[in-house]
Design a binder for these strands. Structure first.
Lengths: 248, 248
DNA sequence: CGCGTCATTGAATACTATCAACGCCAGTGG
DNA sequence: CCACTGGCGTTGATAGTATTCAATGACGCG
């Protein structure tokens, strides 16, 4: 096992990583890439349910998802947990910790997941010497802010059907950008997690999935999702009342 | 009018700005501060309702609020608007545009507002020479991400009373950090805007305000808010069911 | 002073949460 | 190999809460 992991590690570097353009190495020159590569620690896969970091832990590194999927969540004083995001390969997590000494949120693997660990102190000093590295970090954070605004808008949508439609379409786009099918994919998280993220209880999740299926928009088999009528789906998610009435 | 504005501008710089520690100049040396000062453009106040920038406009600068208040919003394809945040003096806006060529969101002054404009190209090249400037930009963005996670959690709270309580307490803290009263303040936005931000219709906003008042938690006169029982308020906002039952 | 926007109030409706119960499936231990 | 168990998902009935619709009142601005 160790042998294979080692082989895999030597083969894996930012330069030949398929996710390069989605991740921290985007927009870097070959030289910059090599330097970044030298500080990235490619760790062996962690099991489903494992913590990448926990709220309150000392912040030391940011992480890029390489394979698998991760959820990040915040824990409230009363013990309530809220899932703040799901993270697919190429996405960087832990960025909300830079401003504080400790991690404000917790990251948990949703399935067998491998990540690239990037010690922040080293990344910062690398950025001091190589402006492009620093610029790309800022770009990644800016993109993250943009995504959060999108999420904020998602959560103020009243109807559960709309929230679910939006989030399914968002996953569709994200999978497509990673070279996977935009119409047929497997959600990596449980209904419980997705409901927590959307602010809906599991019962409502179940009923809403069924309603989308009955309307002929999607076909669902466990966690496998097939978008049957993506146009109607978009009309439901983003359209106005007239557009929805027209498709109905 | 122009004379006064000019006088005011020459007196105002990052070094003696009271908001320095909340803003981009935090953690900078005196030399760094001077360089930053030289690229900051202090514009004369804009009127209530004026656009700082609009979605689709070419991104050129980020802005720091100096006085007044600003709302940022995104416009959907169907014309729906969603307010993604309210911004008080010392806060930096436009950061979600860095990753793209154009502004994804719109910024509108909620009252007479003055801002510091920071041309991003110049800030970037300044950061290349002065690592501390770049680090501070990253810290500000990280703090923004943290705040967005907080907002995300806020919006998944079911009860309108809880959402309103949380947002009032958040404003209380933000005003207090700026040297204003934590118990008595004036909300800069309309009920409509606050409702849009929270995902609630104006009617619900009105009723919820009244319910909080009837419970003796707050006292409301137009946009003036007084937090009468901040402990009970926190119990409602962040507490669990037992804590709320105990205070009732 | 008059107009328009914003805020408020009431009544009816629609939606989601809650409570309760059951089916399904994987992992575990006998 | 099979039964057991616990987490997850589903379904039904009920209750609670926000939205919608309709109308009036208040405030600021020209």
């Amino acid at each position: 096992m160790t042998r294979i992991a080692t082989l895999s590690d030597t083969r894996n570097n930012c330069h030949n990583c398929r996710l390069r353009s989605l991740c921290l190495p985007d927009n870097l020159s070959k030289d910059d890439l090599g330097e970044l590569d030298s500080i990235v620690q490619r760790r062996k896969p962690v099991a489903r349910g494992a913590y990448l970091f926990q709220a309150g832990e000392r912040f030391q590194s940011i992480f890029a998802v390489r394979t698998g999927a991760v959820k990040t969540l915040t824990v409230q004083a009363n013990g309530d947990e809220h899932i703040s995001g799901f993270h697919l390969p190429g996405e960087v997590i832990g960025l909300d910790a830079i401003v504080s000494r400790d991690h404000p949120s917790t990251a948990i693997a949703l399935e067998s997941t491998s990540v690239c660990e990037i010690p922040y102190a080293e990344l910062e000093s690398l950025g001091d010497r190589m402006p492009a590295v620093q610029h790309q970090l800022v770009r990644v954070m800016s993109r993250e802010l943009l995504a959060e605004h999108h999420t904020g808008h998602l959560l103020t949508r009243r109807a559960a059907e709309q929230r679910l439609a939006v989030v399914l379409l968002t996953f569709s786009e994200r999978f497509a950008r990673r070279g996977l099918s935009a119409l047929r994919f497997r959600l990596p998280m449980s209904r419980l997690d997705l409901g927590n993220y959307l602010g809906l209880v599991p019962e409502t999740m179940s009923r809403t999935f069924r309603r989308l299926e009955e309307q002929g928009l999607v076909s669902i088999t466990g966690k496998e999702i097939e978008l049957v009528d993506i146009c109607a789906m978009k009309a439901l998610a983003y359209g106005n009342e007239e557009a929805r009435a027209a498709t109905a």
